[in-house]
């Protein structure tokens, strides 16, 4: 698992580039898919790129000043990109030498922290409601993520994400990992902020929630961070829990992984298209049940299955 520094740097750049540049495409695919399911024409696949470009040039309207507030979008996107370097893409995570799965879980919350603090700082009651909901969704989903990753850790006997990936690729599917993978997939729906779990944004009730007061480049960065995050979690799912076939040739593995991730996101998009929004307490109850079921996976892992 020791990676030469230069190779690590190259892989890190690759991960960041993928997260930054391909995530709008994945979003575009999901939008298109949703339109098809709704029997609409839908926007072109490139629409998210165009959105970003246009937003980056628009005037930035702020309700409050201060340096932290000004930097929050960059911190949010930056931490998502950092998360990308902790997630494997065809090979061990590039920054795997610097952080294990615990670090991954904590870094994953950092972008949400930036978003929620921005929401509270903006002074809009809608944003505050949205921020509060965002936090509750995080509280509901994070245990699922943690349990799933810990199942892997127990199987592989290490907390290193790369180690779990290597073990899984070598040993083939097991019951416990399958349970963990399903749980993680169910969590992905909320992490991507898709129906039925887009409760924090909930455009029709609280008008974008945390993002209501964000405009121009700030909105672009927050959106970008969200899209990158959904791609990263899809990558995490397919790489760590469904790494087969693992060819060992990095470029091929990268392509394969991206295709699998896109397929997963398509599935997420389909679920998004056919479901109504849940209330927050329904979502919390749902994810609590998912987390408890995932504990069954942990039990299987402990007894070696």
């Amino acid at each position: 698992m020791t990676t030469a520094p230069l190779l690590a740097l190259a892989l890190a750049l690759l991960n960041v580039a993928v997260a930054l540049l391909l995530s709008p495409l994945a979003e575009g695919v999901m939008r298109k898919l949703k339109a098809i399911v709704h029997s609409r024409q839908g926007p072109p696949l490139t629409q998210p790129y165009l959105d970003l470009l246009k937003l980056l040039g628009k005037e930035d309207l702020r309700t409050t000043g201060g340096l932290p507030y000004a930097l929050a979008p960059a911190l949010s996107l930056g931490s998502v990109l950092l998360l990308a370097t902790l997630v494997p893409l065809g090979a061990a995570p590039p920054l795997g030498f610097a952080g294990d799965l615990i670090v991954l879980i904590y870094v994953a919350t950092t972008s949400a922290v930036a978003l929620i603090l921005t929401a509270f700082a903006s002074g809009s009651p809608y944003a505050a409601v949205g921020g509060s909901r965002e936090m509750m969704m995080l509280l509901s989903v994070e245990p699922v993520l943690a349990v799933a990753l810990v199942v892997g850790a127990v199987k592989a006997g290490t907390l290193s994400v790369g180690g779990i990936l290597a073990w899984n690729a070598e040993h083939g599917p097991t019951i416990s990992m399958a349970i963990a993978a399903v749980a993680l997939f169910l969590a992905l729906q909320a992490q991507a902020g898709k129906l039925p779990f887009d409760i924090p944004e909930a455009d029709q009730e609280i008008m974008g929630g945390p993002l209501i007061e964000q405009s121009g480049p700030r909105l672009a960065l927050f959106r970008w961070a969200l899209w990158a995050k959904q791609l990263i979690f899809a990558l995490l799912l397919v790489q760590v829990f469904v790494p087969w076939p693992h060819l060992g040739i990095v470029p091929l593995d990268v392509v394969l992984t991206l295709v699998k991730a896109l397929l997963v996101l398509v599935l997420v998009g389909v679920i998004d298209a056919v479901n109504p929004r849940l209330r927050i307490e329904q979502a919390m109850g749902y994810y609590m049940r998912v987390a408890l079921s995932a504990l069954a996976g942990l039990a299987f892992a402990v007894i070696g299955m």
Binding site: G57, G78, S79, L81, E213, P217, L221
Partner: peptide
């Protein structure tokens, strides 16, 4: 890594050269 990536992100944010303006909260 975080500092570098956040600077990249901030670079993106400023790339369009958008101006800023203070406004009241929209209710």
């Amino acid at each position: 890594g975080m500092v570098v990536l956040a600077l990249v992100a901030y670079g993106l944010q400023r790339a369009g050269g958008a101006g800023t303006r203070e406004v009241a909260v929209w209710t």
